[in-house]
Write a protein that binds this DNA or RNA. Sequence first.
RNA 1: GCCGCGAUGGCGGAAUUGGUAGACGCGCCGGACUUAAAAUCCGGUGAUAGCGAUAUCUUGAGGGUUCGAUUCCCUCUCGCGGUACCA
Length: 802
Amino acid sequence: MYDHKIIEKKWQKIWQETELYKTSNDATKPKYYILDMFPYPSGAGLHVGHPKGYIATDILARLKMMQGFNVLHPIGWDAFGLPAENYAIKTKTHPRVATEKNIAVYKEQLEMLGFTYDWSREIDTTDPAYYKWTQWAFIQMFKKGLVFQSSEPINWCPSCKTGLSNEDVEDGACERCGTPVEQKPLPQWVIKITDYAQRLLDDLEKLPHWEDSIKDMQRNWIGRSEGAEIDFKIKDSDVTIRVFTTRVDTIFGCTYVVLAPENSLIEELKAKIVNLAAVNEYCESVKNKTTLERTDLNKDKSGVLLQGLKAINPFNGEEADIFAADYVLNSYGTGAVMAVPAHDERDFAFAEKYNIHVKTSIRPENDGLALGCFTEDGVLVNSGEFTGLKSDVARQNMITWLEKNNYGSRKINFKIKDWVFSRQRYWGEPIPLIHCEKCGVVAVPEDQLPVTLPDVESYEPTGNGESPLAGIADWVNTTCPNCGGAGRRETNTMPQWAGSSWYYLRYIDPKNDSALVDKDLEKYWSPVDFYVGGAEHATRHLIYARFWHKFLFDIGVVSHDEPFTRLQHVGLIMGEDGQKMSKRWGNVINPNDIVEQFGADALRIYEMFMGPFSQAAAWNSGGLSGTRKFLDRIDAITFSDRVDGRALNGSFHKTIKKVGEDIADFKFNTAISSLMILINEIYGPDNKGDISKTNYILLLQLLAPFTPHLVEELWARAGEANSVFKSTWPTYSQELLRDDNISLAVQINGKLRTTIDLPTDTPEDVAKSAVLANEIIQKWLEDKEIVKIIFVPNKLMNIVIK
RNA sequence: GCCGCGAUGGCGGAAUUGGUAGACGCGCCGGACUUAAAAUCCGGUGAUAGCGAUAUCUUGAGGGUUCGAUUCCCUCUCGCGGUACCA
């Protein structure tokens, strides 16, 4: 039993003193940039699940260092956000104070695990020297016309008292606190991420080393759909209703048209609406529903007929009723749809309730008319000149017809919405804009950045749509940089995602005060080679960061249009009870306790051995004692001037190959398993725990990425002067990978009957006579006819008999 | 509903991508050491039958392709993640 407490502290101190992990910008070496998603330092500290990804990247970083790469493996803090602010409200302390305290705790916990972080590159999104460049990037977007002001209704969390982006809403509720969101009209700043929707979608193709599941999530979130916009004229009026549909081919089955209750056309048409009072009442009632109530699929569809109005189908001139109904969303497409109950389930349900005519215009391709609602592609019927065409052909022809007759055009829509970028909260980056009565909205000049967050008396959100900053007169009132007249600062702050959208660039050049990142350094280090983090960021952080990066690429700040070459997601570590670790369940395990009892190396090995890296796994203290036993067995191995046998040398070289490949593939569980097999062999009857010095050195190198503290100690005891991480990762010899003998599996009709030991590469005819001479096989062949024999060299022989 | 992933011993999981299923670890059983226990070491451990060699069955269920399927194809069940009146 080695004393992990002494060894681990000792080596952490030496690493720090010798600056072993300080990353130089030495461009003569090939670079390798390994990135962890940086943590939000919360008051609770780290639990045992948090470091899983950091351990993995640390192992990879150590391997790459030993393989001669210049490795960048930095860490920092994503420290703006609600928890620190809510804590500030409760305790009347500045969020800065709480944040600094939390960072100190996190830092200590991370250092305890012996990571290769270069702390001289540490960043903090709440540091004015950092958010100066978050603001700078925002201003560039503003100047390029990517930022606009809107007062459209947005998602509003009544508990956090702030507006939210679409990405911040989960199941109709605030992602942070779970309160159902409301729709509230609010002046706000919005970034036109939709301008980049097509590129964000297309460029996923350039990312072969991203997991497919995450790319698919992004595709769904971006939600591209191809269709057409079509104008329905309103009878006896100049007004037209423009609808969006992906199914023009069904338009001869359109029997009514629906407007979203918020659609401004209703206001425009009110003079002609006979039952205006009822319509107004319906639209008001919808406004008061939460998103959750509105989007509940199980609820009955509701709506109201706009009496006195008829829409005219441009294809056949038929008149259709017009409804306002909340199953149509104002925020997608044109906020109006043509309803085809025969071929759309939602329209069908609505038509049934309101007794609307169902008119079939599509039949299944190989069948007669379908009953009820048929939503697939088929062949057009009752469709005038288009009757008989298949759906896909019809769509093309009908769009051409629309364009020729000026009734509409081809149109592509995206589900992704523009990024609502203002928050009515305190603890975020101030939006660097100034409102001037004469000049309108003016960007703060770049030489005046950062616009620092002022101290306030009360952090409490006002709830009236204004940020707490609005109350600080001497901060708000300023001069217009354009005309020198009176100006007012924008008082909203940026969302938590702002600072994390580009932080990986800052690690490259963390202290630069004159640029976001130095061009040459960016060229050397970018893009990130390997990015590891939670899958929950697939559609938030990773979309925002890709967008932000593409923008920086467009304005020449970065040299690649995608930031992350390879992405790997971490599987959660659950509590011993299988539940997510949480104070609520009382199943949280603190890494400090584990490090105290078993050591950081044991924790590192255990978390990597638990199972496949990207898969969730439950904590198990039994497994932990097993990995510690493994370390003690390593510690007890001795070396002498003996000469190891060919078998053991072969095992070593197989393990060199396996461990190197598995780390690169993030298959740590099998890498560790192969190391355990090697250790078992070292303790086997041939070696009894004593090996040659050459192999002992090899063994330590193979283990070094996983258990750096113990290995450094053994390495020094073996007489090596420099750190093991200054040594070169071993290469394997093809010659030694080859076994002298193999065991040939012998099957009868595909079933294993025996195995025969043969020299490697025994030719088929020799193997055949050996197999046929075998007693067991002869028994099986008695009175049987051999139909054929299949031979796989060095693997198996299958005899097919009748 | 749609998209994606998964299901292998008592448990976590492995299987070179169609070639000896169950590596490695945990747990359990037996033994050694010990006055005793812990630790450590040695042996065993998918199920059924048999003293045994061995045989039969076995990778969520059912079918198919193949000399051979955990792996490929079809149908289904369950679980996890994402997303959703997106027209």
